[in-house]
Amino acid sequence: MFEQKNSIIAVKELTVGYGLKVVARNINLDLEPGILCGIVGVNGVGKSTLLRTLANFQPKLAGTIEIQNKLLEKHSPSELAQKLSVVLTEQPASKNLTVQELIALGRQPYTNWIGTLTSTDKEHIQKSMDAFLLEKLRHNKCHELSDGQLQRVLIARAMAQDTSLILLDEPTTHLDLYHKVQILKLLQQLAHQNEKTIIFTTHEIDLAIQLCDKILILDGDTNPFGDPCELIEQKHFERLFPSEMVQFDAKTGSFKVNK
C-alpha cells in the first residue's frame, strides 16, 4: 500500500537570496500538520529572506517549495491566501484600526467582492479573539495597544485567515521574557489544538528548544533540521556561535556566557 504523504510544506535543496546574491542555500525541511517549527541562526544568515521566500514575497533562486503537495509558484494569489498566512515584523500601515477590524481583515480570502462577513466568518473572528485573550480589547484602536498585545492581535488575524500554514517573522522581538513565553505558548497551543503548522524565526534558542517540535538551524552550510533533542545530541547548537564567547550546555538546553 502506498500511503499519501500528509505534508503541509516540503522544501528541497532551496536557495534563497536577491538576484545574483545568494543569501542561504541547501535548505531542506518537511512538516506535517500541527507542528511548531522554529528557525534559528545568527544575524544575517538569511532567516527573514527564507521566510519571505516561503511566503512568496520574493522568488526563490533554486530548489522546490511545495505547499500541500503543490508547487508554491503554481498557486494563484487567492488560492495561496487560503493555505498560507503571515505575521511580519512590519507594523500595520494604519494603527487606527480596532482590534476587531484588524482581525476581521484575515477573512478577506473568503468574503465576497465587497467584503461582507458571513456568520462563519464571525465565528472564526470570535474564536481567534478568544484564543489570543483579546475579548476585552476588541474595540480598542491598535495605537492604544502595547507591543505584546499588538503581536497577539496580528497572530490572531493570521489564525482567523484559517490557513493550514502560518509563517511568523521574529514574533518575540521587543517583548519581555514573560510576553515572549506567552506568545510562544499560544503558538504551541494553536499548532497542537488547531492542527496548524507554524514556522517562526527567532533568536530565543533556549525557548525554541523547549517549545518547538522541530527546529531548522540556519548555519550557512548544512542547515540541520530535526527534533530539538536530536539536534542537541548531534551537537549542532555548539557550532552556532564562537565557543570562546558562549557555550551550549546540552543538559539544560541553554547557552552560557564564558567568563
Binding site: A93, G106, T111
Partner: peptide
C-alpha cells in the same frame, strides 16, 4: 473596497491576503 481595506495593513499583508 476590499483592496483598500487590505492596504490598511500594508502591501505585504495585502499580498498575503490574496490581493
Amino acid at each position: 473596497i476590499k483592496a483598500l481595506n487590505a492596504f490598511l495593513l500594508g502591501e505585504n499583508y495585502a499580498l498575503s491576503l490574496g490581493v
